[in-house]
Nucleic acid binder design. Sequence first.
DNA 1: TCCCGAAGTTCGATTTAAATG
DNA 2: GCATTTAAATCGAACTTCGGG
Lengths: 348, 348
Amino acid sequence: MVTIRDVAKESGFSSTTVSIVLNNAPLARYIPATTKKRIERAAKKLGYRPNLFARSLRSKRSHTVGVMVFDMTDPFCTLVLRGIQNSLYQSSFLPILTDVQNERSRFERYLEMLLDRRVEGLIVVANWLFLDINLLADLEKSSIPTAIIGCELNTDQISSVIVDNEVGAHIAIEHLYSLGHRKIAIIRGPKGLTDSIPRWKGIRSFAKASGLELDPRLILDLPESREPGASFDAGYKLTEELIKQKRPFSAIMAFDDVTAFGTIRALAKAGIRVPEQCSVIGFDDVATSSIYSPALTTIRQPLETMGGMAVGIMLDGINAVLEKRETPALHRKVAPELVVRESTHALL
Amino acid sequence: MVTIRDVAKESGFSSTTVSIVLNNAPLARYIPATTKKRIERAAKKLGYRPNLFARSLRSKRSHTVGVMVFDMTDPFCTLVLRGIQNSLYQSSFLPILTDVQNERSRFERYLEMLLDRRVEGLIVVANWLFLDINLLADLEKSSIPTAIIGCELNTDQISSVIVDNEVGAHIAIEHLYSLGHRKIAIIRGPKGLTDSIPRWKGIRSFAKASGLELDPRLILDLPESREPGASFDAGYKLTEELIKQKRPFSAIMAFDDVTAFGTIRALAKAGIRVPEQCSVIGFDDVATSSIYSPALTTIRQPLETMGGMAVGIMLDGINAVLEKRETPALHRKVAPELVVRESTHALL
DNA sequence: TCCCGAAGTTCGATTTAAATG
DNA sequence: GCATTTAAATCGAACTTCGGG
């Protein structure tokens, strides 16, 4: 490997000067252009690349951030990750990606590994996370700029980026209502999930304002499960039960898109056509939704944007640390958006 | 930060001894248990964590590998990434993930960044890659153990892991044939994609062996496009054309699952029911396939396994480098598997 | 010679303090 | 004092060498 000393020898200057020139350090002001030229030429000729280990050792900076995903296979992640990637690409940071797979032990081990590598910031993609005080405590203890995506939070240590669940649910049910639906079945999220509460709140507030009656026998809850994939099966089973009940309904509002897919499958199996006989709406706008058959009407979370925002907040935090400024944690709630596709239809 | 010298001071020994004990170096054989105990206790008490920058500077090892994905949003990637993650978890390596987004410039920049960070190995997830000699040359030049997933290769510098496309296509068409289908439409892959050729070969070899006639007017090609998402639209459009032709067919074999989804949508739009009136088979077994409506019959690529294999090969390569052994590049072809679900049905 | 431990050097880049004309 | 350059110290761990018992 060619070192700075090789460049020094080649160019005829000391390694100090080489360092100053190549980094364009403040002192470079005093160095004549001819010297700079010679050094730069020598560096290029030898193909010099600074050793980042040495540089990091001195500067105590890694130019690396950690990304912890709670479940890679959750379709929620993909677009968030792309957003993270793209925002990071502008900066000089590179991400170390870890897939926690919803296991506490993995979370702890990965967090330790990331901290050992002196990541300068942390982004946690906490889709489908059953919030755990201990995890939060671990994160806060780390004391590096951290942003969580997809999990409501109120700490002043850790920032968060979430969609406005209440508004989203409100828009969703309003859409069904405006299509003429009155007997609406609702599959709520699992109790332990932070998203479940505000979404339910959004539904109730619309119901109250519009006079829509919510039949308690048409309201079901997703069971608590560690795997997000499970929500497909749960959506399927709950919809089967719904059908068995024989209580009429003309629309189903599913907790999320994957649940909605399960619902559609169950409906199809029972010979109920979507959207002609029953409308279905989801939540998230996962990649699959637009290519599903029928294409799913849903509430879009701007996932890529959210990933980018989290990076922005974290980067600000990193800069604040470097400049020894204080920055309070930010809690951003982004607006969801109704995406009307094929799975909802006006009541005939 | 607490350094090895702090531990030395706290325990009353020199930093040398501390280093030997904590790393359980060969010389630790000679050090009495009491000394070890005291050092370990001091380290724990102070919460000592070795500085990896310093260690890397000395050892020239980063314990990091680079992962380059050509398109994160391709559903092909997710499971491959999980396989990579899981295999890496066993080892002490951590992955730096980069999303090339099918752009040459990103590829080059990321490769340079990874190399600067002295990643010890490289894994390239080259789904949907229009193979490019220059990319390969760049990769070979890097001269670190590299494994490519999803792209046929024959270099002796770079290893590869792919599914046996020929066998897969053979199994797929055989499945349709065994269900009684004789008029089979085929949507082939784009010309520039390495996978396209062997899959077509598999189809033809089965046709020849079984006496199945392939109607050239029922054979269409996917256009070349940089985005994998485009294959949904292409599948949709090609199927529309197929229908417009009015040439009868009872089954469609799509190049991959996403194309198959486009096909199913077009069929549904035209009022043709799957599988009752037309069977559809895909290729890949992407996560969406099992939850699609109807659930898609397809040829499964063992994606998670393939990710794991690539890691295994790369890790062997890294070990070989450390031990100054030579290892030739490995080219693994894994067996695909037919997954029968709802989208194919016996001809009535 | 064997066992135990310490002093000193090395990795490569940055930075402080200082030396030239 | 100024412009220009550099020797030497520093970051933290690991390894080589050496000395004392």
